[in-house]
Structures are given as structure tokens and as C-alpha cells.
Design a protein around this nucleic acid. Structure first.
Lengths: 220, 220
DNA sequence: GGGTGGCACGTACGCTGTACGTGCGTCAAT
DNA sequence: ATTGACGCACGTACAGCGTACGTGCCACCC
């Protein structure tokens, strides 16, 4: 048996989360899966919180950014956003863990660096780039939460429908009832791309305004 | 002493969360705060998960929508979005609880109804209204998570700065270092309004395109 | 008066994270 | 070769968790 190591512990934790959900995770289960004693874990990880941080970092660091630096900036931010979403597909149950702990490690900073470079190349000054990036991250995280939150047990049936309780009061919620079909139809990718399109176009508009108003911020 | 009731239990739970954080919540602590036995809680609440759902619903139902139905739709969605953010200010530690459990109750459906009515009044058809709403909710939730996640212990010092570790490698992360000032400066309201502006303008652009392309969706 | 049901409560069980002590294996210095 | 130090796996133990179950009190209706 390979010697116990931090990496093996983190891998086992991710595996367990993906198989049985984030709630099922415990030091004892992880140790059992690894075939070691519980306390052996603490020789490599200070405590459970740190282990979850390590899980978040490991998942996050698997993002692969393959956007072409010479491409149009609109396409680059689109690809970067998709890369984020991709990890949520690879590790759906871990997404909540990643999102719920904010980490200040290089793994978390790397995508930020990439995005800022893209936005500043596009012509935004520092403050606007930061604000735009924040808006993007907020949108992406919110989207991922919706995607993974809607399928807490991964029942294959609720991917297309049964999202809404069937007993919505038609008179109390006329609008909801009217668009119930679309509300229930949960094509996550389509929704994600829809909002992504919106955001990118908004940024493009802002950039034009910014340029029209001369150098400096997009305030106007 | 007033008789134990579901409402009193939920209120005590919210109180406890706000005072000591979401991690500190336990049935025993709640019971102790109420001066009752632990198991008495279970006469009014089936289990802890249901209690947390009730907490989320109680917090969510305190949103007050005072947007003027005759106002411009851009202003209405802005005010509705702010109303959401407002609850995160009233119950900062509970926000994570609200966000992490998706609920299909009237309390959760009411804001949806309101928003859909506004968007459809603005001229969007059902599908676009739903997609736009989803993008908005994603942005708002993502923003709130950032706001409350940055202050897990509510230390008054870290509101303005100290967000970034001081040892960021300048050569590894040149962009991050260059805009570190803006990255650390965390004016949550300003950031929220910045992205909100972006989104609303994006929707306005989309609406114009939609109208220019004739009746129907905004698909161009 | 006698049944019935709601509600507060104590006890108990299996689970959790982790502090602490112990023993084994390997390597460095003598 | 002997000894000491150190790293690491592990068992035990403890406080705290959610909650299943049983008990007893009290208000109610027949």
C-alpha cells in the first residue's frame, strides 16, 4: 500500500464527496476508504476545515484554460467562464464545497490573473476590470449553485421537469404559472450561455462607451 | 413563558445564527436558548434540515418589495434586486443558509412572480423572461455570497483591506499585483451596483434588438 | 369518570471532530 | 553497534451532535 499522503487524503475526500455527497464526508469515512486509522489523517492535515480547503483548492486547480491569447477578448472571457463551469460538471457534488470556502491560494488567484489580463487587454482600466471580474464571478458562482443545487440526489428524472411543485396557485402566481413550462425546463447549459451572452454584450457596450468618452472609466 | 411554537423556534434559530454563526447552530443550543428540553423542539419541527428550511423561508419572506409598478421597468428590476440584497444585510450570517437550500415554497416563489411580471411588462416573452430572471438571480446570489463570505467572523478590520494575502508573487501574478488596491478595496454596495448596472443595460440592449427584430424573442 | 391526544421531557444510541499517549520504523551521531 | 531523535500510524477517550423511543402531565370531549 502506498504511504499515506496529503494528496491521497484529498483525493479520497473528493471521491467520497462525489460518490455520497458533501454531507456524507467525515474523517472516519475517509480513513476507512483509505484503509487507515482515523488519526493517521491528522499527520498530514491539521483538521477537517483545512482538508475541505484543500479539496476546494484541488478541484479549482484542475481548471484548464486553453483560450487563445490572440483571440478576440469577448471570446476569451467566454471560454474562461466555460472553463469554470466545466469543473462543476467534473465535480458536481464538490462544487458547493468549493464555493462555500473562499481561498486565497495561488490556485484561486490564477484564474483571477488570467481574467484580469484579458480585461485589461480589452482596454479596461484597473478598477473597471476588477468590478467586471467581480460581476462575472458572481454570475458564474450563482449559476453553478443553481445547477448543482437542483440535483441534490442526482435523480435522473428531475433533469427535465418536476422542478416546480405541481400545486402552484394559478391565481396567486399567474406569471409563474404562465411560464411554468420554461421554468421547469432546465437546460443548464442554455441558461448559462444566455446569461453569459448578456454579460459579455453588456461589457462590450460599456467598453464602447468608455472609449467614446475618452480614456478612463466607463462611468457615464 | 409563552408556549413553544414553530415560529418561536425559527426565531431563536435565526437569532443564534446571527449571533454566533451558522456553524454554531445545533438543536441543543436552540433549546437551551429557549429554556426548553431538546426533544420538545421535535414536536414542532420534524428535523434539523426542516428547521433550516424554515429559517430560509422566514428570512426570505421578510423581503419588502416597494417598487412602484408604474415606474420604468429598468428601475423596477433595480429596486427588486436591491431588496434581495437588503435581506443579506439584515441577516448576514443567515444568508449562506438561505442560499444553500433551494426551496419551492410560496415565500420563494413570490419574488419570482414579481420579477416575471416586471420583465413581461417590459416586453419579453416567457422564455426570455425566465432566462433573464435566472441570470439575475445567479448574479445576486453570487454577489451576496461574496459579501458574506468575506466576513466570516465579522472582524471590523477586514472590511477595508487585508483581503489579499500580502505575499502575492509579483512576477507570477503581475495583473493581480497591479490592481491589488482595487481588489482589496471592498465596497460591496459599489460592486453590486456596478454589476447590476451592467446587467440592466445588457437587458435593455437585448430588448431593443428584440423589438427591432419584430415580435417574439430576442434571439438574433 | 374515563378515554384520548398533544406536548414537554429524559434517556440512550450511534455518530461526529480531535486531543492525547503509545509503539514502531528509520535515520544520525556517537 | 548502540543510542537517541524523530516521523508517522494507530487506539483510546471525550465532548458534542441529531434524533428514536418511552414516560408523564395536562386539557379536552363523551
Amino acid at each position: 500500500m502506498a504511504p499515506l499522503s496529503r494528496a491521497r487524503i484529498v483525493a479520497a475526500a473528493i471521491d467520497l464527496i462525489e460518490r455520497e455527497g458533501a454531507d456524507a464526508i467525515s474523517m472516519r469515512r475517509i480513513a476507512a476508504d483509505l484503509g487507515v486509522g482515523v488519526m493517521s489523517l491528522y499527520n498530514h492535515v491539521p483538521n477537517k476545515a483545512a482538508l475541505l480547503d484543500a479539496v476546494a483548492e484541488a478541484v479549482l486547480s484542475q481548471i484548464s484554460f486553453d483560450d487563445d491569447p490572440s483571440a478576440e477578448w469577448t471570446e476569451r472571457v467566454r471560454i474562461q467562464a466555460r472553463a469554470f463551469r466545466q469543473i462543476a460538471h467534473g465535480y458536481p457534488r464538490s462544487t458547493m464545497v468549493v464555493v462555500s470556502r473562499q481561498l486565497k491560494s495561488p490556485a484561486g488567484l490564477f484564474p483571477v490573473e488570467r481574467a484580469l489580463a484579458t480585461l485589461r487587454d480589452a482596454g479596461f482600466d484597473g478598477e473597471d476590470a476588477v468590478q467586471i471580474l467581480r460581476a462575472f464571478i458572481a454570475y458564474i458562482i450563482g449559476s453553478l449553485l443553481r445547477e448543482v443545487g437542483v440535483t441534490p440526489t442526482f435523480a435522473p428524472g428531475n433533469l427535465g421537469g418536476a422542478d416546480l411543485p405541481p400545486d402552484v396557485d394559478t391565481t396567486l402566481f399567474p406569471e409563474v404559472s404562465a411560464v411554468a413550462t420554461h421554468l421547469c425546463a432546465g437546460d443548464h447549459e442554455k441558461s448559462f450561455e444566455y446569461g453569459l451572452d448578456m454579460l459579455i454584450r453588456a461589457i462590450a457596450v460599456q467598453l464602447r462607451e468608455s472609449k467614446a468618452a475618452g480614456r478612463g472609466g466607463a462611468r457615464g
